[in-house]
């Protein structure tokens, strides 16, 4: 195993334990995995950021 693989396994393994059932949230008949919920949250953050952050144009701020 390479050093990078060993290090990444050690670091990510500590953050996300994949050797166990996933976590889920329940809301009535809706059931969502926490992983998917995080992805949806990131997409919403991306959407809001894309609207709010100015687009840098070539040649200055005209």
């Amino acid at each position: 195993m390479s050093v990078i693989a060993a290090v990444s396994q050690f670091v990510l393994g500590a953050l996300f334990d994949l050797n166990r059932p996933g976590h889920y949230v329940h809301w009535g008949f809706i059931q969502l995995s926490v992983a998917n919920l995080v992805v949806i949250g990131i997409m919403i953050v991306l959407f809001v950021a894309a609207i709010l952050i100015p687009y840098r144009r070539e040649g200055g701020d005209r």
Binding site: F47, A49, A50, I51, I53, Y55, R57
Partner: peptide, 8 residues
């Protein structure tokens, strides 16, 4: 079109 939302 110079907006990040158009990049997606």
């Amino acid at each position: 079109v110079a907006s990040w939302i158009y990049v997606f």
